[in-house]
Amino acid sequence: MKTLYDVQQLLKKFNIYVYVGKRIWDIEVMALELDHLHQAQLITQDEFIQAKLVLTQQHRIEEQKNNGRDL
């Protein structure tokens, strides 16, 4: 799992579709949904860790984009 699309496909397997309207918010909601799947033991530890790493990286990228707009 290397991209945000891969994480979306994982969530899609559980009929979880996330669209809030802002990419950074979508990433945050995906992280919450991922936590719920992990707590329910519906995904493996490896899937969870890989997906969380992707989401963390993408969240940082979006924060950097947004901080650039504030200047």
Score class of each variant (00 low, 15 high):
M1G: 15
K2N: 15
K2Q: 14
T3E: 11
T3H: 07
L4W: 03
Y5M: 10
Y5T: 10
Y5E: 14
D6I: 00
D6L: 02
V7Y: 03
Q8M: 14
Q8D: 10
Q8H: 07
Q9H: 03
L10S: 12
L11K: 06
K12W: 08
K12L: 15
K13G: 10
K13A: 15
K13D: 15
K13T: 13
F14K: 03
F14C: 06
F14E: 11
N15I: 00
N15D: 12
I16H: 04
I16L: 11
I16E: 04
I16Y: 09
V18K: 05
Y19F: 05
Y19P: 00
Y19M: 02
V20Y: 05
V20P: 08
V20H: 07
V20S: 13
K22E: 15
R23Y: 09
I24T: 12
I24V: 13
D26H: 05
I27K: 01
I27G: 04
I27E: 05
E28V: 01
E28I: 00
E28T: 00
E28R: 10
E28P: 01
M30D: 07
M30E: 09
M30K: 07
L32D: 12
L32S: 08
L32C: 01
L34P: 02
L34R: 04
D35K: 12
D35C: 04
H36K: 13
L37W: 05
L37F: 04
L37A: 08
H38S: 06
H38D: 06
H38T: 07
Q39N: 08
Q41K: 11
Q41V: 07
Q41N: 12
L42A: 10
L42K: 10
L42N: 02
L42H: 03
I43F: 03
I43A: 00
T44K: 08
T44A: 01
T44N: 09
T44P: 06
Q45A: 03
Q45K: 14
D46Q: 13
D46W: 00
E47D: 14
E47M: 03
E47G: 04
F48N: 09
F48G: 01
I49D: 13
I49V: 04
I49H: 11
I49T: 13
Q50H: 11
Q50N: 14
Q50Y: 01
Q50E: 13
K52S: 10
L53C: 01
V54H: 09
L55M: 05
Q57T: 12
Q57I: 02
Q57W: 09
Q57K: 14
Q58G: 01
Q58E: 15
R60H: 14
I61L: 05
I61P: 02
I61N: 09
I61A: 07
I61K: 08
E62A: 12
E62T: 05
E63Q: 08
E63T: 08
Q64H: 04
Q64C: 08
K65I: 15
K65S: 04
N66I: 13
N67P: 02
N67R: 04
N67T: 11
G68K: 02
R69W: 01
R69P: 00
R69S: 07
D70S: 15
D70G: 09
D70H: 11
L71C: 12
L71N: 11
